[in-house]
Design a protein around this nucleic acid. Structure first.
Length: 594
RNA sequence: GGUUCCGUAGCUCAGCUGGAUAGAGCAACGGCCUUCUAAGCCGUAGGUCGAAGGUUCGAAUCCUUCCGGAAUCACCA
């Protein structure tokens, strides 16, 4: 498919060569979409070209405009406003563009680049159920994977389950001490919630112990270290690392409860992975690497036998890689995981979707891998995203202000049902289809709300008000799609549906819509380059809005002129296709009715 | 304190590789359902783009300083 901008740029270079006998610097040729309030489709900013022309802006623009209009079939007219040359693309050319777009199945999707990209996201701890913050991670990772894949890359989605470490030992300890052999089934709870409950119980008991010690005169830090449960949890961790059989069995049992719970949530969110890593399988690799590097002198050891790397020359601190008791830390595990992952995939790029509170961690990880001389250390990228905050501030599990993923989704589905029942449009639909529709709408609202915000920014989520089904929302876009389906069905039933390849014809009303559809290709490329779903989300909202406005102002099936009607039908059809495939990049499904 | 990120309408956010008169939604107010789905459309009102300098034909966008907020600087993950 031809790129109109490229055609224009070539012409402009030629124009400058012929009119002014100068070679224009390509970087100085700025073509942008013409603002809505002005006549034209594309605008050349002439200020940067004044050096070449040696003339005033108005004169330069006019001369170039005349040349281009005379020599370019695609350009039908031009006008000049101050230093801006507005070019109008001929309707015949837009028609041919639309015909081409119409005939392409996956318009905007790119052919294979052969580039292998691994994207890690989700990466839950097995001691807490998933909450709103994880949802942002999951939606973002899933969407970016889709976008990169649409851009032609070979993408593998990977989850690294943080299934070992001191935090798990805390839940295990609390369950041993307080659980009396209770299972999730006994408690009537989802497995992840059940284990999470014991993690909370641990913290409550720990707090009591700590306060008691502090009352006896210990400092906060001493009290934390001396609390009986701290020591017990530590000893469980050491037993775990030694491979103590009973400890391992309990650990496995509790983790399996959690996985059962996670599976339910993942499937409700419509999310999956190509490969799942467990830290319990990879942390030893990290330990091995670290011990080897210690032998070869790349790492140092303190008197208390902690192993560390001095990064002060990079403006960072000393980074501990093995504790005094020989157990591994987070960084050690990530080193091991990175190496195993490289061996598995030989990736060209490995993306970590992890919150911005870990910016420092990933900087250090790259530096360490570089110091250990892995040639691919510069292929790791951290896709860092901001926190989700509540109107009252940060979510705090201690204060019970964490928004639970399952609960939130359930609430959303309920309010989707309420809205739908109020409109009364789904009365003749089976209960099963209704349920599925409510789920799609609820997820659309949730995903769109989160993905429309630039991922690197912190965002505020108001559980009471923020999620809406009207306005700048996912359901708004779904609604535009659904309405088109209804239109197409009606056209079909009345034998109005045009045969493929019927003549196209574009009136003024349709031009804007055709241009917007044409832009999808460019938008997708940009979103892929920037790893940013919000670009797609905001584009789709604009497109849906444009269609809605068009829909209200132009009768489609009532149009008398068959040619015009046919065109309106296929234009609607193509708009629906773009909306659908665009939404799918965000992980949002469309219902056929709503 | 060092480093990084963020400050745009009452609220939630677009716009940021410099371009024309800074845009949406929500909330408020006023129209539009015997006509293809009103989860919609049309309109009114709402702004010193945190502040001050600088760079230039041109700055919300780039640079510097300051003010405000967040994250991080663990033998937590």
């Amino acid at each position: 498919m031809q790129d109109i901008k490229q055609i224009l740029i070539k012409k402009i270079i030629k124009a400058i060569r012929e009119i002014y006998q100068k070679e224009a610097d390509t970087s100085k040729i700025q073509i942008q979409a013409t603002r809505k309030d002005f006549e034209g489709d594309y605008t050349l900013v002439v200020f940067p070209l004044l050096a070449a022309s040696g003339k005033a802006p108005l004169e330069t623009a006019t001369e170039i405009g005349k040349y281009i209009k005379a020599s370019t079939a695609e350009v039908s007219d031009f006008n000049v406003v101050t230093g801006f040359l507005n070019l109008t693309i001929s309707e015949i050319y837009w028609q041919s563009i639309f015909e081409e777009i119409y005939s392409i199945k996956n318009f905007g999707f790119k052919p294979s680049t052969g580039k292998k990209i691994v994207i890690e996201y989700s990466s839950p701890n097995t001691n807490k159920p998933l909450h709103l913050g994880h949802m942002r991670n999951n939606f973002l990772g899933w969407s970016v994977a889709n976008i990169l894949s649409a851009a032609g890359h070979d993408v593998a989605k990977v989850n690294l389950v943080n299934d070992r470490g001191i935090h798990i030992c805390k839940s295990m300890l609390a369950w041993q001490e307080l659980g009396n052999g209770e299972t999730p089934k006994d408690a009537g709870m989802k497995g992840d919630k059940f284990v999470g409950k014991y993690y909370v119980l641990y913290n409550e008991e720990f707090k009591k112990q700590k306060e008691k010690l502090m009352a006896e005169g210990l400092s906060e830090k001493e009290a934390e270290a001396e609390a009986p449960w701290t020591k017990k949890a530590r000893s469980i961790l050491r037993r775990w690392e030694r491979g103590h059989k009973k400890t391992r069995q309990l650990w496995e049992k509790m983790n399996n409860w959690v996985y059962d719970g996670f599976d339910v949530t993942y499937s409700a969110l419509g999310i999956n992975f190509d490969k799942i890593y467990h830290e319990s399988d990879t942390y030893l690799k990290g330990k091995e690497i670290v011990l080897n590097a210690l032998k070869t002198g790349e790492l140092s050891q303190r008197e208390d036998s902690t192993v560390y790397l001095d990064l002060t020359e990079y403006g960072m601190d000393e980074k501990v890689l093995l504790r005094g008791d020989g157990t591994t830390v987070y960084m050690t595990q990530d080193i091991g995981t990175a190496i195993i992952r490289y061996n598995d995939f030989k990736f060209d790029e490995s993306i970590y979707v992890v919150g911005n509170e870990q910016d420092y961690h990933f900087k250090v990880l790259s530096v360490i891998l570089d110091r250990l001389e892995y040639p691919w250390s510069n292929r790791l990228t951290h896709l860092s995203y901001g926190m989700v905050e509540l109107p009252e501030g940060k979510m705090k599990s201690r204060e019970g202000t964490v928004v639970d993923a399952d609960d939130l989704l359930e609430e959303m589905i309920t309010s989707a049902r309420t809205s739908s029942e109020k409109s009364g449009k789904l009365t003749e639909v089976s209960d099963k289809e209704k349920k599925e529709t409510y789920r799609k709408i609820a997820l659309a609202a949730l995903k769109f709300f989160i993905l429309k915000v630039d991922s690197k920014k912190n965002m505020v989520f108001n559980p009471k008000e923020s999620i809406d089904f009207n306005g700048h929302t996912g359901p708004f876009i779904q609604y535009a799609y659904v309405r088109i389906q209804s239109l197409l069905n009606k056209a079909n039933n009345n034998n109005m549906y045009p045969k493929k390849g019927s003549d196209t014809l574009i009136s003024k009303n349709e031009l804007e819509l055709v241009k917007s559809i044409y832009n999808f290709s460019e938008i997708l490329e940009l979103a892929s380059k920037k790893r940013n779903p919000s670009i797609i989300a905001n584009y789709l909202y604009d497109l849906a809005g444009e269609y809605n406005s068009y829909y209200h102002n132009s009768p489609i099936l009532k149009e008398e002129d068959e040619k015009i009607r046919n065109f309106r039908i296929i234009l609607s059809e193509k708009t629906a296709e773009i909306l659908k495939s665009g939404l799918s990049l965000l992980g949002i499904e469309v219902p056929e009715r709503m």
